[in-house]
C-alpha cells in the first residue's frame, strides 16, 4: 500500500520542531507499524537524511518502550502497543500523523522520543515493598485469596508506556500511579506501607507536573493492558485514608 506520513521532527529539546511529510510505497499489510517506520528510516538513511528517532525495544508489547501518538490516539487505532499495531489497520492512500507523547512531565528528547524518567521517580518515591534480600518468610506462609491475587495481577500488568498520560486531556498520570498503589495495597505484603506509599507517590506525581484526573476514562480506554479505572478510585481511597490517619502532622 501507499501511504503519506506526517511525522513530528525535532532535532533536540530546544528546537521548535515541526511536521515533515514523507511518501512511502510498497508497504505490506503484514508489517508492524514500527517495521513500516524501519522502512522509512532505511529510505532516509540511503538518501543521507537523518532517520526518524523513536523509542522501541522488545517489539512484543511488553517492555513499554514504544510510544507514538498515531492519528490522534496513543498507540494508534487499536488498543495495543504501537509495536503490536499492524499495517492492516490502515488503508492504501491513508495519511498518518505521528506525534510524540505530549506532556509537561514527558519532555521531548528528539523527534518522537520523550523522557519518561518521571515515571521512574514516582516508583522510587514508594512503588515497592520495603524488604531486603533474604530473611523473608516462606512464599506459602501467607495465603492470598485467588481473587485478590488476580486483581493485584491485573493492576501489576502496567507496562509503564505512558499512553494513559498521552491520552488524558489533562496529561494526568493517575492510572499509572494508581495501578502500582493498587497492586501493593491489595496484597498482604504491601499492605504494611500502603498509607505512606499512597501519600508519597501522589506527592511525587504532583511534583512531576502531571495534570489532575477528571475521570474521563480516556486513560483506561487507551491503555494497551486495559488497566481499570477502579484502580484510580482505590488510590483516592488510600490517599484520603492516609491523610486522615497517618500519625504525623
Amino acid at each position: 500500500m501507499n501511504l503519506t506520513l506526517k511525522v513530528w521532527r525535532q532535532q533536540n529539546p530546544s528546537d521548535k520542531g515541526g511536521f515533515k511529510e514523507y511518501k512511502l510505497s510498497g508497504i505490506s499489510a503484514d508489517m508492524s507499524f514500527l517495521e513500516m517506520l524501519d522502512v522509512l528510516n532505511e529510505d532516509l538513511s540511503e538518501k543521507g537524511e537523518d532517520p526518524v528517532h523513536f523509542d522501541h525495544d522488545c517489539r512484543e508489547g511488553i517492555c513499554g518502550m514504544c510510544s507514538l501518538y498515531i492519528n490522534g490516539q496513543p498507540h494508534g487505532p487499536t488498543q495495543t502497543t504501537t509495536c503490536q499495531l499492524h499495517m492492516r489497520s490502515f488503508k492504501d492512500g491513508d495519511t498518518i500523523t505521528i506525534e510524540p507523547w505530549r506532556a509537561n512531565a514527558f519532555p521531548i528528547v528528539k523527534d518522537l522520543v520523550v523522557d519518561r524518567g518521571s515515571f521512574d521517580r514516582i516508583i522510587q518515591s514508594g512503588g515497592y515493598v520495603s524488604v531486603n534480600t533474604g530473611g523473608v518468610p516462606d512464599a506459602n506462609e501467607i495465603p492470598i485469596p485467588k481473587i485478590i491475587a488476580d486483581e493485584a495481577f491485573d493492576s501489576a500488568t502496567c507496562i509503564g508506556c505512558g499512553a494513559c498520560v498521552a491520552a488524558c486531556k489533562n496529561a494526568s498520570a493517575m492510572l499509572f500511579v494508581s495501578a502500582k498503589v493498587s497492586q501493593l495495597a491489595l496484597l498482604p505484603q504491601g499492605k504494611v506501607e500502603k498509607r505512606e506509599r499512597a501519600e508519597k507517590m501522589v506527592a511525587q506525581m504532583d511534583e512531576e507536573g502531571f495534570g489532575a484526573c477528571t475521570n474521563t476514562g480516556a486513560c483506561s480506554a487507551e491503555c494497551p493492558k486495559e488497566i481499570d479505572l477502579s484502580n484510580i478510585a482505590r488510590m483516592n481511597r488510600e490517599y484520603f485514608a492516609a491523610s486522615l490517619s497517618t500519625e504525623k502532622s
Binding site: 515497592y128 516462606d138 512464599a139 485469596p145 485467588k146 491475587a149 493485584a152 496484597l187 505484603q189
Partner: peptide, 18 residues
C-alpha cells in the same frame, strides 16, 4: 520467597497458596 515478599502476584490456587 523473595519475589512473593516483594509483591509479585504469582498465580494462586483457590486455597490461597501458590
Amino acid at each position: 520467597d523473595q519475589c512473593v515478599a516483594q509483591g509479585v502476584p504469582f498465580a494462586r490456587e483457590y486455597g490461597g497458596l501458590l
